[in-house]
Design a binder for these strands. Structure first.
Lengths: 155, 155
DNA sequence: TGTCAACTAACAATCATTGGTGATACCTTG
DNA sequence: CAAGGTATCACCAATGATTGTTAGTTGACA
């Protein structure tokens, strides 16, 4: 996504207003690689603005998604995750224990389908999700118990 | 998954009872390649047993998943889809319009990660989701309007 | 045949998300 | 700077998929 300043211009030119809350959200998303959920953005935002509402978070994330500045993704953790990186095409690593998500900037050139395998589908994007254990949960698991904060439904 | 008869044995040997409802569900899943949701299994089951309850469907699907006879998957259509094919490792084709899901029995050998790209994750499975348009929605889209039955949240 | 799990109906609860309200704040354009 | 209108807030309700609860009945199986 673009910088907060550029987003300010973009919002205005698309008829949206730029409030302190929205700028706060812009700043928080800027360079965030954790693929936050709406709720975690809310928590982070509340550190700066105690009264900011979850509704506002949802609305702004929705606006940003509409403008193509962030991507909404469902990796099966039960909440929608938001990805500020829409520049580089990439895939995702998902921790099966704590639900953390990281970008995977690897291109798989050989992922085209053999003729006839497409079952008549008109293909769009191919999205790869690698499931595994993040470094933290790896430590916690090999050691003893209590990993990070568990998240959402299994698979 | 196994045949209804084999599942009957398996259920009994795991302390579960085999009722007419359960056998009906076994039969319906047998060879179903549409990756039905709990609700669509319910609809199909009601054709044979008008009074079968959605709870029973959920419970039996849950049991089958626990026994590893079917797989529960989240492809971002808003409902959990169930896949009776747990024998062949495979990926999935998902229609962005109607939400239909088909198996993709193609193996991608070159999907290992370059050294260092794993960000310290311990890798498990890699699941690939191809999004696109199914044959039916393709026709409907290129023609005029009204595709199949739209399903669930976008991406 | 008896026991106990499974079934049903009906209803409530969950969780993430979206929708309404009315009132206030404040951004933006003129 | 002032007007006008959108964003915000708090509060509360609704959605949709799924799970839980209850209580009474059926039926599997040893």
């Amino acid at each position: 996504m673009r910088t907060p300043d550029e987003l300010t211009v973009l919002f205005r030119s698309s008829g949206r207003k730029v409030t302190a809350q929205r700028q706060c959200i812009f700043r928080l998303l800027q360079g965030d690689e954790t693929h936050p959920s709406a709720e975690s953005v809310h928590v982070a935002a509340q550190l700066e603005m105690e009264t900011i509402s979850l509704k506002t978070i949802y609305q702004t994330l929705h606006d940003l998604t509409e403008l193509g500045e962030i991507a909404a993704l469902d990796v099966g953790t039960g909440r929608t995750r938001f990805d500020p990186n829409v520049e580089d095409p990439h895939h995702h690593l998902v921790c099966q224990v704590c639900g953390s998500v990281r970008d995977l900037v690897v291109d798989f050139p050989d992922m085209s389908l053999p003729a006839g395998a497409d079952l008549g589908f008109e293909l769009g994007t191919a999205e790869v999700i690698f499931r595994g254990l993040c470094p933290d949960c790896r430590k916690a698991t090999s050691a003893r118990s209590s990993p990070g904060v568990p998240v959402g439904r299994p698979a």
